[in-house]
């Protein structure tokens, strides 16, 4: 990247600063960034627009919040939190996945109260609905 050149130019002339800034912004733009289809109208809640959330490195970088600990210990028996942190699903798909993990994947089924805590946490933080 021509950072050095741009820096020198920027020191010479104010319009060049603007031009350099625009060039950098252009270069950083990724037309294939994982988001809603750019050719479609924007949706109400794009994931990329969400404010940065505090995560807990002790809990596999899951977002801090009620249910994070229960979710962590329930899930990492089989897989890491990396797969959870990628998801943005409808509530119905989370319910389906929960059942699928118990029935097909041998997941331990916790008490109903714990199930509720975990599913609420997942639907809160990894949702396409909110």
């Amino acid at each position: 990247m021509t950072v050095k050149t741009i820096f020198l130019r920027a020191g010479l002339l104010a319009p060049a600063v603007l031009a350099a800034t625009a060039a950098l912004a252009q270069q950083a733009y990724d037309p294939m960034r994982p988001a809603a289809n750019p050719l479609a109208p924007p949706t109400s809640a794009p994931a990329s627009a969400a404010p940065a959330v505090e995560t807990d490195p002790e809990l596999g970088n899951l977002p801090v919040g009620p249910g994070a600990e229960d979710t962590y210990y329930q899930c990492v028996a089989c897989h890491s939190t990396a797969i959870i942190r990628q998801q943005r699903l409808t509530d119905e798909r989370w319910d389906y996945l929960w059942t699928w993990m118990i029935e097909e994947q041998g997941m331990y089924e916790p008490e109903p109260e714990t199930t509720d805590v975990i599913l609420t946490y997942l639907k809160t933080h990894f949702s396409s609905e909110r």
Binding site: P34, A35, N37, A40, A47, Q87, R93
Partner: peptide, 14 residues
């Protein structure tokens, strides 16, 4: 990764 709403699984791009 480009589906909206999202689909469960690894969010592969290309």
């Amino acid at each position: 990764a480009f589906f909206q709403p999202g689909a469960s699984g690894n969010q592969w791009t290309t």
